[in-house]
Simulated assay, not measured.
Amino acid sequence: MTATPPRLEIRHLKRRFGDRDVVNDVSLMIQPGHVTCLLGPSGCGKSTTLRMIAGVEMQDSGEIYVDGKLICDTVFRVPPERRHIGLMFQDFALFPHMTVADNVAFGLKDTREAKRARVEELLDKVGLIWAVDEYPHVLSGGEQQRIALARALAPRPRIMLMDEPFSGLDNRLRDDIRDETLSVLKEEDTAVLLVTHEPEEAMRMADEIALMRDGKIVQQGAPYNIYNAPVDKAAVGFFSDINVIRGKSKGALTETPFGQFLTPGLQDGEDVDIVIRPQHLKLDFDRGGKGPNPTATDGVAARGVVERARFMGYESLVEFRMDYDGSTLKATVPNVFLPAEGTPLWLTIRRDRCFVFPATE
């Protein structure tokens, strides 16, 4: 039995501007009804990748397939309007002189009755059937975003490309619109490629994340795996604040304020970065002033002196100057915890939540 091809597949896409490889050997596959997120900092090649898939930018090399059929390489090219690909951007780009119904129906080539039926079906899905004969200026930003989604879905695209589509909305509204959008896209069984620089958005929406850096996909997988098994220090830091404990490997061990860490595979004398997120640095109130006492889970405690403490709304962020080497570490504590500057406290770390990498600057 022949396996069903992915809805979208790109193979070894490259795009060069001047002497810079903006997109360098990018490959990925997306199945119908699945959301893949291209996540990375500004300028890493995410939007250029999207434009090549849409057909508004030509790749220097590589191939693009839809449902197993080649739509573009460096010789053959299906025009953008025949690729069955929908587009959504930060700018909703609704036509102000057209009604909502006419905006949604803009790309349809059916009869008037069929257009109206499709428009009403989609407006009902996005909860805006009441606005069918209104004009865009009477709608809020969130409502206009939902109209833009309905317009993009109206021609029944096989693939939806979304470039930072929610960044123009305020935070509280953004969460609701993202969830509603995801629900509609899943119902339509559309393959989605979403571009964002926001890790929270990627974690919330994606079935799979492709983490991009300097034109390349450096790691790809389910959000849980990307977060909990990062490929390097930069990948850890892209999703959250980090603490970095620097040491030197000796005999596959590295000495730290929190005791020795196993660092196999590194040469003696090689610098090591032990990376831990602030939420996994724990305050050991039971220890008081008794000093270090190793435990199986958290290892050795180390003493630090509070430099600053801030309440962040649902947790407190406390910064410590460590006695061991004068380095600064940050810990997050649930609720309100605001110790005075200069307060000494003992800290432990979740060893099972630490990541060990060869040191980088």
Rank of each mutant, 00 (worst) to 15 (best):
P32Q: 15
M52V: 13
E120M: 14
F311K: 02
M52L: 10
G342E: 11
F337C: 14
A101T: 12
L345D: 11
G127S: 04
S167P: 03
K125T: 05
L13P: 00
A309M: 09
P96F: 08
D298P: 00
G251A: 07
L182I: 09
N171K: 13
L338A: 03
S167L: 12
V195T: 05
T343V: 11
S240W: 06
D102S: 10
V132I: 15
M212A: 04
G33Y: 12
G251Y: 06
P257K: 12
M1P: 12
G291A: 09
G40V: 11
P199R: 13
G86W: 01
I129S: 11
N335P: 00
R204L: 12
A131Y: 12
F258C: 06
F238E: 04
P257V: 14
N103G: 03
V132L: 05
K290T: 12
E319D: 09
P264Y: 02
D214C: 03
D189F: 00
D67E: 14
R77M: 11
A154G: 04
M98D: 05
L185K: 05
T4C: 02
M88N: 08
T196F: 06
A105F: 10
D67P: 06
K186V: 07
D352L: 05
H137C: 07
R16W: 08
V35F: 13
H12G: 14
L317P: 00
V132P: 01
D176F: 09
M212H: 04
D241W: 02
L94D: 05
R51T: 06
T2H: 14
I242Q: 06
L39Q: 04
L185A: 08
D25K: 07
N335A: 13
G45M: 02
E57G: 03
V22H: 07
T328H: 12
P6L: 10
R321M: 08
M58T: 13
E315V: 05
T348F: 02
G86P: 05
A148K: 04
R7W: 01
E270C: 05
E315P: 00
L173E: 04
M1D: 07
A210D: 04
F89H: 09
P257N: 14
R7N: 01
I85Q: 03
V305W: 12
D232F: 04
A150F: 03
D323T: 14
V218Q: 06
P334I: 13
S27P: 06
A222Q: 12
R287V: 15
P339M: 08
R15Q: 14
V75F: 05
Y224C: 00
L50H: 06
V195L: 00
R213P: 02
D352A: 10
V22E: 01
G168F: 03
F166R: 09
T49C: 01
R174Y: 10
E341Y: 03
E121A: 15
C72T: 15
G269S: 10
M162W: 10
I274W: 09
L87R: 00
P334C: 13
V126A: 08
D214T: 13
K125M: 14
L173N: 02
K216D: 00
T332G: 04
E188M: 15
R303T: 14
E188Y: 06
R246W: 01
G215N: 02
D124F: 01
V333Y: 13
A331H: 07
D133C: 02
R11H: 14
L281F: 13
V184Y: 06
K125H: 01
G18I: 15
R146K: 15
D102W: 09
K282Q: 14
